[in-house]
């Protein structure tokens, strides 16, 4: 299908490089390492999912890239220049929609517009984004008047309004019901096709990671020893092109691997496995 007008070309997706990133939190019981030795390169325009046990620093890693938090050691670079403070090249969508309850959805999305956007251009852009996430007719509703899924889509539109080169999603669908989550995943892929930013996605849902991402990063928890190990336990290239078949058997294999990496028993029977004696 031909495009009637080109999608935005003024905003390139950014590559992200993390070099030996370290982050330690001070707690009452002393210091607790959360991230250690994170070396990572995200290519411009790719979707990378972060999975790992709870408390392993997934969200903390995301916050280093957004500038909401600063690493204790190492560097975070966007297209070669370091992230310092809240970086306008990135935009975040959180697990909760975090919309301002006294503003309409349109006004909430407008909050994401870069500063100094002319009024008319801003209004047109907000309307375009609301249509993109399927909220074209809900622009004037308040957050409390819409469902959780709609609020989360407005939150995504607000992040996109920033024209981010890097889109940071912190468990964006985690609080939604299973069916809504599946629809949101497809919506994200549509959005990524229309507004191709580099996407870093934190999720606790292994299937979601495999369905959406080009690569999946498995983080390990640094709690309890393992002094010499870095935070990144594995990097998995996900085969196939999007949109993927959710039932793809290769994904099932990876899913079993990832769940094992997360310490979950999968009861998975590999084809050709000598123990596969139940097959008829």
């Amino acid at each position: 299908m031909a495009l009637t007008t080109p999608v935005r070309t003024d905003r390139p997706a950014h590559g992200v490089v993390l070099q030996d990133v370290r982050r330690t939190f001070a707690t009452a019981a002393g210091t607790r390492p959360v991230l250690r030795g994170v070396d990572l390169e995200l290519h411009a325009g790719e979707i990378v999912a972060l999975v790992g046990p709870s408390g392993c620093g997934k969200s903390t890693l995301l916050r280093q890239v957004s500038g909401l938090d600063t690493p204790d050691g190492g560097r975070v670079l966007l297209d070669g220049t370091p992230v310092a403070g809240i970086d306008r090249r990135t935009a975040v969508a959180f697990q909760e929609p975090r919309l301002l309850p006294w503003r309409t959805l349109a006004a909430n999305v407008a909050l994401g517009l870069p500063r100094g956007t002319p009024k008319d251009a801003g209004r047109a852009r907000v309307a375009e984004l609301l249509r993109l996430v399927g909220l074209g007719e809900s622009a004037d509703l308040r957050p409390r008047q819409v469902s959780g899924g709609m609020a989360q889509r407005a939150s995504l539109a607000r992040a996109l309004a920033r024209n981010p080169g890097v889109l940071l999603l912190d468990e964006p669908f985690g609080a939604l019901d299973a069916l809504t989550r599946l629809r949101m995943q497809d919506l994200l892929l549509d959005v990524h096709a229309a507004e191709p930013a580099t996407v870093l996605l934190v999720t606790h849902d292994v299937e979601e990671a495999l369905y959406l991402a080009d690569r999946v990063l498995l983080l390990r928890s640094l709690a309890g020893g393992a002094e010499d190990l870095g935070s990144v336990a594995r990097v998995i290239d996900v085969p196939g092109r999007r949109p993927r078949d959710r039932a793809d058997h290769r994904l099932a294999e990876l899913r079993a691997e990832l769940l094992e990496g997360l310490g979950v028993a999968t009861h998975h029977v590999r084809p050709g496995d000598p123990d596969a004696h139940h097959s008829i």
Partner: peptide, 13 residues
């Protein structure tokens, strides 16, 4: 660039 979603300023998405 894939083209299966066209977000334009004027036409419908």
């Amino acid at each position: 660039m894939t083209d299966h979603v066209a977000g334009t300023g004027t036409g419908p998405v």
